[in-house]
Design a protein around this nucleic acid. Structure first.
Lengths: 208, 208, 208, 208
DNA sequence: CCCTAAGCGAGACGGTACGTCAGGTCTTCGG
DNA sequence: CCGAAGACCTGACGTACCGTCTCGCTTAGGG
C-alpha cells in the first residue's frame, strides 16, 4: 500500500490517485524491461509521467515501491476446484510457477527478500502484502479437502496452524528454489511428482 | 573461483595470492557490516588494503566476487552419520539453518540469486559453485539410507536423479523460505515436523 | 512597490494589506539571517505566516520582492545641514556607509544589481526605486552650497545635470567599492580624505 | 587559481591540466550565454566535456569557479603610455569600461562581490585574484607621472599607499557604478569629465 | 644482471543515479 | 475572490560508486 491511505490531513491539494496507479504500472513495466538492479526511481518517474518527488512523497525508496507494485500480482493466484486435493495442489503449483515465469516477479521477488534481511520494516511489508495474503490458498485447499473427506478435520487448532505454515513453506519454497535457484522448469511432470510426495507425506505422517 | 587460476601468461609479475584471500575475507566482512546492497567494490578494496584495479583484474564485478566469497561457506555443510535417515535429514536441515543465520550468507544468497535471473553467466557460476556442490548431501544421505536398508536401491538411474533433485529443491527451498520469506525460526521442532513430512512422503509415495 | 496598487477589480475578498507589510519585513529578516543567495520564497512565506501563492500574487519573483524590501531603507538617507559643503558631503558618505554596513543592504544591493545586468525590467525597478530617488541628495547638497556661496549657480542646465550624475556615480561608486570590493572600512578619516579629493576636483575643475 | 596548484601528492593519476583550461573557458562561455544566475555546474561540465565530479574536485562551488574564470580577463588591462597623466587615466577608464561591457564580466563581477559579503574566503579570493592585482595600474600611473614631473614624489610612504587605495576605489567605483547601477555608457566624454574631476582633485587637494 | 612484461597502490577520469531542495503553478477547502 | 495548505512538475544540487585510465613503482622470469 502506498502511504496515501494513511493521510488524514484535510487541507491542501489532495494527492492524485491517478499518479499512484500510473507509478505502480510504470514500476512493473520497468521491472520487465530493466530488471530489479537496473530499475531506477528516475526511470519509473519518467515512465509514469510524474516527478521524482512525487514518488518519494509516497514511497520511501525502491524496495517499498517494488513490493507494492508486485504484491498485487500475487492476488491473481486462486484455487479453482479441480475435484481432488491432488489436482488442486498441482494446479496451484503450476499457477505459481507461471507467476514466477513473468519477468517482473522473477526479478523482483528474490531481490526484495534479499533486501528485507537487513530491513525489518521491509520484511513486515513483504509479509503483510505478499506472504500472509497467500496462505489463504493453503487454508482454502485444506477446508475443501476436509469437505471432500480427503483430510480429517483437525481438533488442535494450533497444531493445524503450524501444519498449514509448514505446507506453505514447503510448496512455495520448493517451487521458488526449483525455478530460481536450480533454474529448472516447473512443468506438469515435476508438479505431479512434487504433489505425490507432499500428499503422501501429509497422509503418511498422520498414519505414522 | 577467481580468474587467477585461468591465467596462462608466464611472464610479468605474478598475482599476489595473498590478495585473493584478503579480498574474499574483506568481502565477507563487508557483507556482515553493510549487507549486500550497501557493499561497494571500493569498500572491499579498502578493507583488503588493495587497489580497486586489483579487484577488477580478478573478478568482473560485485556479483561474481560475492558468489566466490560466499560459496566456500556452503562447503562447511556435511552429513554426519546419526544412525537413521530421519536423524540425518533433521541434522542437515539444522546445519543449513545455522548457515543461513549468518549475516553474510543470509544477505548474499538471495541477492545473487535475484541478480542471476537476469544474468546467465552468473546463474551458471552460482550453480557450479554452490548449488550443484551441495547435492552431494542428498546423494550421500540416500546411499547411506540404502546401506541401512531404510530405502530400496533404485534401478532406474534417471528416475533416481530426478527424485534427488526434487528432494534437494524441497529441502533447500523449504528451509530458505521459512527463514528468509516467512522469517520464522528453523528450530528442532520445525525441523522434526518437516522431516516427518518429507520421509513419509518418500516412503508413502513409493507404496502408493 | 508591490503590484497591489495596480489592482482594479472591486469584487471578491480584498487583499490583506497586513500581508504586504509582513512579507517585506520577513524578507528583510530573511536577508539578515540567510543572505541573498540562500533566501527562498518558501522561507519568506513561512516567516510572514503566509502561503507562497500570496507572495507570487504580489511579486513576480525573488528579485522584485527583494528590491521592494530593501528600497525603503535607502529613503532613510538624508542631508542634515552641517554648515559647509564639505561637512555635508562627509556626513552623507558616512550615512551611506552605515547603511551598507547593515547585512540586509550589504548582501541585497549587489545581488540585485548583478541580476539586473540580464533583466531590463529589474534594472528599471532598481533605478526607479533606489538610484534615482537618492540623486535628490546630490541636488539638495548643490542647492544648499549655492545658497551658501560655496558653489556658483550654473547657467547651463544640461551640463549641471551631467555633473550631478557624475558626482553621484563618484560618491556612491567609491563608497560601495571601498566597502564591498576592497572590503575596507569607510571611517571618518577615509570620508574626510575622499571629501577633500572630491571638492578640490569640483572647484579645481571649474578653475582649470 | 584552481586547487591544482596546491596539490603535493605524487601518487595516483595526476589531474589533467587540459581539463582546467577547458573548464575555465567553458565557464566564460556559459556566463556569456546564460549569465551568472542561470549558469550551472552541470552546464559548465557538459560544455567542457568533463564530469561534474572533476569540477568539484578542483573548485568548491560556482562562486570560486567563476572568480577564477573571470580573474584572468582583468589581467588584460594595461596602462599604455599616452604621454600625459590625464590621457593615461582616461585610457585606463575606457579600457575598464570595455572590459565591463563584456557579458561575462558584467554579469559575474557584481554577483561574486554580492556572494562575498557572506563568505570570507570568497572575499579573500576575489581580493587576491582580482582587486589587488589591478592596483598595479594606479601605482604604475603615479610612477610614470612622477617621472614626467606631473606629480611630486611623495615622502610619506604610508600616506602614499592610502592615497593610491583611495584613487583606486574612486576610479573603479565610479566606472562600475556608472555602468552597472546607473546603467549609463562610459564614453570618451564621460571619461574626460571624470578625469578632469579626479586630477583637479589630486592636484588641488595637495595645494589646499 | 638487466630487460621486459605484468602486477601493484593511488587516485583522477567520464558517467549514472541518488535523494533533496527551490522555483513557480495548480487544486483543494474554508472564509 | 482571497488565503492557507500542500501536491505537482521541473531542473539543479552536491555526493556516492561505477568501471576505466594513467601514473610511478615493484617483482618476477628469461635472455
Amino acid at each position: 500500500m502506498s502511504d496515501s491511505d494513511l493521510r488524514a490531513g484535510r487541507t491542501g491539494r489532495p494527492r492524485s490517485p491517478a499518479a499512484d496507479a500510473a507509478i505502480l504500472e510504470a514500476t512493473r513495466a520497468s521491472l520487465v524491461d530493466l530488471g530489479w538492479s537496473k530499475l531506477t526511481m528516475g526511470d519509473v518517474a519518467a515512465r509514469a509521467g510524474v516527478a521524482k518527488t512525487t514518488l518519494y512523497r509516497r514511497w520511501a525508496g525502491k524496495n517499498e515501491l517494488v513490493v507494492d507494485a508486485v504484491a498485487v500480482l500475487f492476488d491473481e493466484l486462486e484455487l479453482p476446484d479441480r475435484g481432488s486435493l491432488a489436482a488442486d495442489v498441482q494446479g496451484v503449483v503450476l499457477q505459481f510457477a507461471a507467476l514466477l515465469e513473468r519477468p517482473e516477479t522473477r526479478t523482483a521477488l528474490m531481490a526484495v527478500v534479499a533486501e528485507s534481511t537487513r530491513d525489518e520494516s521491509l520484511r513486515l511489508r513483504i509479509r503483510d502484502s505478499i506472504v500472509e495474503r497467500q496462505k489463504r490458498l493453503v487454508l482454502e485447499g485444506r477446508l475443501r479437502a476436509q469437505r471432500r473427506g480427503e483430510l480429517p478435520v483437525e481438533t488442535d487448532a494450533s497444531a493445524a496452524d503450524r501444519t498449514a505454515d509448514l505446507i506453505f513453506d514447503v510448496i512455495a519454497g520448493a517451487v521458488v528454489h526449483r525455478m530460481l535457484v536450480s533454474a529448472e522448469p516447473v512443468d506438469a511432470d515435476w508438479a505431479g511428482r512434487f504433489t505425490v510426495l507432499l500428499l503422501s507425506g501429509l497422509t503418511g505422517a498422520r498414519a505414522g
